[in-house]
Amino acid sequence: MTKRTVRAAQILRDGLRLIVLGAVALIALPTLAQAAPKTLLLYGDSLMAGLGLDAKDGFAAQLQAALDAKHLDVAVVNASVSGDTTADGLARLDWTLADRPDAVLLELGANDMLQGLPAEAVGHNLDAILDRFAADGVPVLLAGMKANPSLGQDYVAAFDTVFPTLSEKYKAALFPFFLDGVALDATLNQADGIHPNAVGVKRIVANILPYVEQLLAAATH
């Protein structure tokens, strides 16, 4: 075999090797693209932290199971803290966002209401939180809360207006009332009458799931 023939054979082998490697890379691309799921950050208080429930019965676990059942490649990251007010949520926002999520479900305000904190302060804090998400280009689903009627008509009117007003300002999706169909139903709540039991959480997840799906569809990865 002449040197020219040997060289030609080597070039042919190298060319085939590149073709094979290229084909393998193309096959692997979809796998690599799918390797990292979208991240959905839960940013709330005890209602999403799962106070009083086993981990598998909490909102985060049940929502994750519901998304898995829909075959959606999403990782639910629960950054909710029991007892948090909107001021607490604002104070810890920077370090929570150290790893940027793809979307956020924001549920804060219940503890402010239970403590009778001014609705104006609730609106100010949530405004600052939503402004930060907007600056980072992170889509948000805002979970609304309703004030207890015992706090008086003026407070109820001011508090209940906060969530739709901010939703409109930031063009954020709004789930009007996080505890819709669950609040005040003894069969769906724990003994304290405030926190949902496992069945109550299941109801909440079923109610909010279509909103979460729309949020994730709008989230870039």
Score class of each variant (00 low, 15 high):
47 L>R: 11
14 D>H: 08
70 K>H: 11
82 S>C: 13
65 A>H: 10
113 M>R: 12
72 L>S: 08
132 R>W: 15
46 S>F: 15
217 A>E: 13
187 T>Q: 07
53 L>T: 02
69 A>I: 07
17 R>N: 03
115 Q>N: 10
37 P>L: 00
17 R>H: 04
67 L>M: 10
218 A>R: 11
208 I>Q: 07
193 G>W: 11
140 V>F: 08
46 S>W: 14
91 A>W: 06
79 A>K: 11
147 A>E: 01
129 I>E: 07
40 L>P: 00
124 H>G: 08
216 L>R: 03
18 L>I: 01
211 Y>N: 07
106 L>D: 09
215 L>P: 00
109 G>F: 05
209 L>N: 09
127 D>F: 09
94 D>N: 12
212 V>Q: 05
164 P>T: 06
18 L>T: 03
93 L>N: 12
196 P>W: 13
82 S>I: 10
65 A>Y: 11
62 Q>E: 15
104 V>D: 05
25 A>V: 02
184 L>K: 13
187 T>C: 01
187 T>A: 12
202 K>Y: 02
19 I>G: 06
121 A>W: 01
95 W>H: 10
212 V>G: 01
183 A>K: 14
167 S>R: 13
74 V>N: 05
112 D>E: 01
206 A>L: 02
166 L>G: 07
101 P>C: 03
60 A>E: 11
203 R>A: 03
159 F>D: 00
34 Q>W: 08
56 K>G: 12
120 E>H: 07
75 A>K: 15
87 A>P: 07
60 A>P: 13
56 K>C: 08
131 D>H: 15
36 A>K: 12
174 L>N: 03
130 L>I: 14
65 A>D: 11
216 L>M: 13
163 F>I: 11
46 S>D: 15
28 A>Q: 04
7 R>I: 03
125 N>V: 04
130 L>A: 12
33 A>V: 08
191 A>P: 05
172 A>Q: 02
19 I>K: 07
76 V>R: 14
8 A>P: 00
47 L>M: 14
76 V>K: 09
187 T>H: 12
216 L>C: 02
103 A>Y: 04
108 L>K: 13
44 G>H: 09
72 L>I: 12
211 Y>A: 06
193 G>A: 06
122 V>K: 11
29 L>V: 12
98 A>T: 13
161 T>C: 13
196 P>E: 11
109 G>I: 01
217 A>Y: 06
24 V>Q: 02
20 V>D: 00
60 A>H: 09
197 N>S: 12
79 A>T: 03
213 E>M: 10
165 T>P: 09
8 A>T: 07
35 A>I: 04
68 D>G: 15
26 L>Q: 07
219 A>T: 10
41 L>C: 06
35 A>L: 14
104 V>E: 01
19 I>F: 06
164 P>F: 10
58 G>L: 03
154 D>P: 00
103 A>M: 05
169 K>D: 10
39 T>Y: 04
104 V>S: 06
206 A>C: 04
142 L>Y: 04
185 D>N: 14
159 F>V: 00
95 W>E: 10
190 Q>H: 14
98 A>E: 14
132 R>Y: 09
108 L>V: 11
83 G>N: 14
111 N>V: 04
75 A>D: 13
3 K>G: 05
33 A>M: 11
174 L>E: 04
69 A>D: 13
158 A>Y: 06
15 G>V: 00
14 D>S: 10
171 K>M: 09
62 Q>K: 15
213 E>A: 04
